[in-house]
Computed example of a mutant assay.
Amino acid sequence: MSFAPLIIAPSILASDFARFGEEVRALDVAGADWIHLDVMDGHFVPNISFGPEVVRALRPLSARTFDVHLMIAPVDPYLEAFAKAGADHITVHAEAGPHLHRSLQAVRALGCRAGVALNPGTPASAVAHVLDLVDLVLVMTVNPGFGGQAFLAPMLDKVADVKAMIADRPIVIEVDGGVGPDNAGACAAAGASVFVAGSSVLRGGPDAYADNIAAIREAAALARGEMV
């Protein structure tokens, strides 16, 4: 069986906000595949993080894929700003607005890869009708809004459901929330290939980032039979 490449996407939500630029550079050097940027509006989720100008400021500091996760509603008015700021991927929530098709079409029209995210309370079937418009499906493994939460193990069944729905489409499955070496293997076995990790990567400071990233990658690879 062939698998999608394993992707580790550290979330800068867990970084030192006073050292954003240095943190992004350190994650790049440490072997991050993507940089995950969690955008929160205090409305769709009970927290506020940052907007497109922060993405714009960070963009020159890394050539890694910028994976922008918009936890905002309404989302459509802000898509162009994040695309122009340097997003490579833009993921919108299935729950964030009434016209999901339109949002995803707009993301692609802006030249970005399109993702759709599912909150824990939303079934996999909610995105079955848009799979031809997406490049990734993000399964939230915590309720969005805050970093450092405990992984919700029942979401593994949702990952497996999404994997079955995707069938042979070239779509990757991303997991986000409480992901670390202790559950990355189970996520990989269920079908995930992209692992968003905040606290588990950024703990210990920059000197620990490479080892933390490697531990998640190795746990996922072992579950897929790619390492002994």
Rank of each mutant, 00 (worst) to 15 (best):
R59I: 11
L61R: 14
S62P: 09
A63S: 14
A63E: 12
R64Q: 05
T65R: 13
F66L: 14
D67S: 02
L70F: 09
M71H: 11
M71W: 13
P74R: 01
V75M: 04
V75K: 04
P77H: 08
P77T: 03
Y78F: 15
E80P: 12
E80I: 11
E80T: 15
A83I: 03
A83K: 07
K84R: 15
A85G: 09
A85Q: 05
G86I: 11
A87E: 08
A87I: 05
D88S: 10
H89Y: 15
I90N: 02
T91D: 00
T91Y: 07
T91W: 07
H93N: 09
H93I: 08
H93F: 02
A94E: 15
E95Y: 02
A96S: 15
G97P: 05
G97M: 09
P98Q: 13
P98H: 10
P98L: 14
H99G: 10
L100T: 08
L100R: 12
H101N: 15
H101M: 13
H101E: 15
R102G: 10
S103E: 14
A106R: 15
A106C: 11
A106L: 14
A106W: 01
V107G: 05
R108D: 03
A109T: 14
L110N: 07
C112G: 00
V116H: 07
A117S: 15
A117R: 06
L118V: 09
N119F: 07
P120W: 05
P120V: 11
G121D: 15
P123W: 01
P123Y: 05
A126E: 14
V127C: 12
V127E: 01
A128L: 06
H129Q: 15
V130I: 12
L131R: 00
V134C: 10
V134A: 05
V134H: 08
V134E: 03
D135H: 13
L136E: 13
L136Y: 03
V137Y: 04
L138S: 11
V139C: 07
M140W: 08
M140E: 04
T141S: 00
T141D: 02
V142L: 12
V142A: 10
P144T: 08
F146Y: 12
G147N: 09
G147C: 14
G148A: 04
L152A: 08
L152E: 03
A153G: 08
A153W: 06
M155C: 02
M155W: 11
M155P: 03
K158H: 03
V159C: 03
A160I: 11
D161N: 14
D161R: 15
V162Y: 07
K163G: 00
M165G: 03
I166H: 00
A167E: 10
D168I: 04
R169K: 13
R169F: 06
R169D: 10
I171Y: 10
I173W: 03
V175M: 04
D176G: 00
D176Y: 02
D176K: 06
G178Y: 02
G180F: 12
G180K: 07
D182N: 14
N183R: 01
N183Y: 03
N183M: 06
G185D: 07
A186W: 06
